[in-house]
Computed example of a mutant assay.
Amino acid sequence: MNAELAMASLEFMPNKGAKIISKVIASAVSNGGFEPQEVVVASCRVDAGPVLKRFLPRARGSASGIRKPTSHVFVEVAKAAKKED
């Protein structure tokens, strides 16, 4: 999908992660030194990252564990192939 179209469609989705992925695509485009119109999103994936382990105090001096997972977002952009008519 064209990067400009992908960012525009993700910007108006109601999902929480859509805006985050839109920002990551914009960052990948600018880091590559491209314009959004001339690149396509080659691949996009979200992998598990490290987990922060915390404790929550409970009754009678005990504690229960809290896991705060993080994630890695990978976006790969590539030059769009020119269509020859």
Rank of each mutant, 00 (worst) to 15 (best):
M1N: 13
M1R: 13
N2K: 13
E4S: 15
E4I: 14
L5C: 10
L5Y: 14
L5R: 15
A6S: 15
M7L: 12
M7P: 05
S9Q: 15
S9A: 10
L10I: 02
F12Q: 12
N15S: 15
K16S: 12
K19G: 14
I20H: 08
I20F: 05
I20Y: 08
I20T: 14
K23F: 13
V24F: 09
V24Y: 09
S27N: 07
A28H: 00
A28Y: 03
A28G: 01
V29G: 00
V29K: 00
S30V: 03
N31L: 10
N31T: 09
N31K: 13
G32L: 02
G33A: 01
G33Y: 03
F34C: 03
E35R: 08
P36F: 01
P36E: 02
V39S: 01
V39F: 00
V40N: 03
V40A: 06
V41G: 01
S43T: 12
S43C: 05
C44P: 05
C44Y: 04
A48I: 07
G49M: 03
G49I: 00
P50Y: 04
P50I: 07
V51R: 03
F55W: 10
F55H: 08
L56Y: 07
P57C: 04
R58Y: 06
R58N: 09
R58K: 11
A59F: 05
A59S: 13
A59T: 09
G61R: 01
S62H: 09
S64T: 14
G65R: 13
I66H: 07
I66E: 12
R67W: 11
R67D: 14
K68L: 10
P69T: 11
T70V: 04
T70R: 10
V73R: 02
V75H: 01
V75A: 02
E76H: 07
A81H: 06
K82A: 15
K82R: 11
K82P: 13
K82W: 07
K83M: 11
K83A: 14
E84I: 11
D85P: 13
D85C: 05
